[in-house]
């Protein structure tokens, strides 16, 4: 039992290394593996190659690595706290909030200021990131406020979904009144991408996540207790209300930050925890948390790789790839679990 866990963890870690290198290696420009190695180990290589690897592929792979981990961990936390297998980063309306923030900036700025933000480069990028974080945080604070007031998890879940609908509706109205090129740049943002984060912002993103991810690991005991249901958790000494808020807050911040930098990435957060439960056959978060973190990174790198496969040149939208891979995973795991339930 314990050995299996260790073996799988090592396998996951190894696959991350492999996929990371594959992400550096593969792309529209063919660069030999030896040169890729030289470029990242600081050796002397063709300047163009070096630029492609260090300025484009490396930040992109790093973004995918960190974003995947963040979404998977947030997904696991939400599925546990809401005790609902379909809970994921997008359910609480947090990603809708981020989208709304971006929509305001991208769509309204062109309309009101006369200058389309999407066309002003770096400053526009920063503004979009900030808008996404503000939008996501606003929705999340609203959710946390409501979480204090309502008793049931399902109620909260439904309210989250409703907030999502409202945000989508407002975005629809904004789109209707906006210039065509602004709508287009908003749609592109909505497709999600690990490549939009440029140079300096990557480091900011990685640092934020490097702080948040270990913090969320501290919640394993709380999450294990929450699995038992409110009554038992409370009887075992947990302040359920505070625990629920902490977990929602943690997951919300993770989703907000990832969405701000990469756009709404669907299905990763939903699929990875299911995948890990299927592999490790446990609901112990001391195993599931690190497992989800690793598997999330690996899957994000894989999706990024597929999106950029030679032949697709301009790169497929990551969101389509994650959905194409994630949806079958969720379906398969749930279907398999249904069979196992009747097995004994």
């Amino acid at each position: 039992m314990k050995r299996n866990v260790a073996i799988w963890m090592i396998l996951l870690a190894a696959s991350i290394l492999l996929l990371f290198f594959a992400n550096l290696l593969l792309g529209s420009v063919a660069i030999p593996a030896a040169s890729v190695w030289k470029a990242i180990s600081g050796g002397e290589v063709d300047l163009i190659w070096q630029n492609i690897i260090l300025k484009s592929r490396f930040p992109q792979a790093l973004t995918a690595l960190v974003a995947g981990a963040g979404l998977a961990v947030a997904g696991l936390q939400m599925q546990t706290v809401f005790r609902n297998p379909l809970a994921g980063p997008s359910v609480l309306g947090v990603s809708s909030g981020a989208s709304l923030g971006v929509a305001f900036v991208v769509l309204l700025s062109g309309r009101l200021g006369g200058v389309a933000l999407s066309s002003i480069g770096y400053m526009g990028e920063v503004a979009m990131t900030m808008a996404a974080i503000i939008g996501a945080m606003a929705v999340m604070l609203l959710i946390v406020y409501i979480a204090q007031k309502v008793r049931g998890n399902v109620t909260l879940l439904i309210i989250g979904v409703m907030i999502g609908y409202v945000a989508t509706a407002i975005i629809g109205v904004l789109k209707f009144f906006s210039a065509e090129e602004d709508v287009r740049s908003y749609v592109v943002w909505g497709l999600g991408s690990f490549s939009r984060v440029s140079g300096g912002q990557v480091m900011t993103f990685v640092i934020i996540m490097a702080v948040l991810l270990p913090l969320s690991m501290f919640l394993v005991k709380i999450l294990n207790l929450l699995l038992l249901g409110d009554g038992y958790a409370r009887n075992l000494g947990l302040n359920v209300r505070r625990a629920r808020m902490t977990v929602i807050l943690c997951a919300g911040v993770l989703v907000a930050v990832v969405t701000a930098y990469c756009g709404p990435i669907s299905f990763l957060g939903l699929a990875v925890p299911h995948l890990c439960r299927g592999i490790f056959k446990t609901s112990d978060h001391r195993t599931l948390m690190p497992a989800s973190l690793l598997a999330g990174s690996a899957l994000a790198l894989l999706c990024n790789l597929i999106a950029r496969m030679p032949g697709f040149e301009g790169a497929l939208p990551v969101n389509s790839v994650t959905a194409l891979i994630g949806a079958p995973v969720v379906a398969a795991v749930l279907y398999k679990r249904r069979k196992e339930d009747y097995a004994e």
């Binding site: 005790r83 501290f218 394993v220 005991k221 294990n224 207790l225 699995l227 038992l228 249901g229 009554g231 038992y232 009887n235 075992l236 000494g237 947990l238 439960r277 056959k281 446990t282 609901s283 112990d284 001391r286 679990r337």
Partner: peptide, 30 residues
């Protein structure tokens, strides 16, 4: 306490569940 509410626990062994009873005594990681 032993409650009427049926838990929807999956993939947890009997031993692990009984072990949850030790939560008030275990440390940070449980």
């Amino acid at each position: 306490v032993v409650l009427t509410e049926r838990t929807s626990l999956q993939n947890m062994t009997v031993e692990e569940l009984v072990g949850m009873g030790r939560s008030p005594y275990t440390g940070f990681w449980g």
